[in-house]
Amino acid sequence: MPQSLSLVVVHFIFSTHDRFPCIGPSVRPGLHAYLAEIARDLNCDCYRVGGVSDHVHLAVRLARTISISEFVEKLKTGSSKWMKKQQPELGGFSWQRGYGAFSVAPADVDAVVAYIDNQEDHHRTRTFQDEYRAFLRKYGVEYNEEYVWD
């Protein structure tokens, strides 16, 4: 085969440090656009970025030349620097160390995009912690509560 092809779609989730609710409505659209721009600069297709005050979700088709960990590192580093420049009170902004990366079947991309689009409504009744635990259960991931939320 003369060329390399891949279609790897991933649903990423990561939160602010200590899940501090600092991604307010005034900065949120710009942050989401910036995260999508970082993804595009890494030759990845970003289907959607969304979230609420303490975390973000991205639906992304990864380029075949980047690992999940490298992608998340570049997202977090670049967006953290961007956030710190937006408002003086965000000067100490940072993301929590960990992240979730869940595989998505190409046929399920629309459902994931719809899920990300409905984050505001979704989080009226469910905390980030409850949402994340549900993803871990859905994918059969065993976890230690202390490790997940450090």
Results as ranks from 00 to 15, higher is better:
82 W>P: 06
28 R>D: 05
100 G>S: 05
33 A>R: 02
101 A>G: 13
82 W>N: 05
55 H>M: 04
61 R>M: 09
115 Y>H: 13
146 E>Y: 07
78 G>K: 06
135 F>I: 10
49 V>Q: 12
140 G>L: 07
142 E>L: 12
5 L>R: 04
39 A>D: 11
146 E>V: 11
59 A>S: 13
104 V>S: 08
100 G>Q: 00
93 F>D: 12
127 T>R: 11
124 R>K: 15
70 E>H: 03
30 G>P: 10
62 L>R: 00
53 S>I: 05
11 H>S: 04
113 V>D: 01
80 S>E: 05
87 Q>H: 14
3 Q>R: 11
79 S>H: 03
92 G>T: 11
133 R>C: 09
21 P>K: 08
79 S>T: 09
94 S>Y: 11
103 S>C: 06
114 A>Q: 15
136 L>M: 13
38 I>H: 01
138 K>I: 10
111 A>L: 08
103 S>E: 00
4 S>M: 08
104 V>F: 12
150 D>P: 07
114 A>T: 14
97 R>S: 13
35 L>N: 07
94 S>N: 13
140 G>M: 06
32 H>N: 10
52 V>G: 02
33 A>I: 02
25 P>L: 09
148 V>F: 03
40 R>G: 12
113 V>E: 05
144 N>G: 01
139 Y>L: 05
39 A>K: 08
137 R>E: 14
150 D>K: 14
93 F>S: 11
32 H>P: 00
73 E>S: 13
95 W>P: 01
35 L>C: 15
61 R>G: 03
111 A>R: 09
88 P>A: 12
37 E>Y: 15
51 G>T: 04
54 D>Q: 00
76 K>R: 12
131 E>Y: 14
81 K>S: 14
50 G>W: 00
29 P>L: 06
63 A>L: 00
9 V>D: 00
14 F>A: 06
134 A>H: 11
64 R>W: 00
98 G>W: 05
51 G>L: 12
54 D>H: 07
134 A>P: 01
64 R>I: 05
48 R>L: 03
59 A>M: 08
52 V>M: 07
137 R>L: 10
139 Y>V: 05
34 Y>D: 14
23 I>S: 07
34 Y>T: 11
123 H>I: 00
122 H>T: 13
109 V>H: 01
149 W>Q: 02
103 S>Y: 07
33 A>H: 08
121 D>K: 13
78 G>Q: 07
138 K>S: 11
71 F>N: 03
126 R>M: 15
17 H>Q: 11
8 V>Y: 05
137 R>P: 00
125 T>G: 14
59 A>D: 13
55 H>F: 00
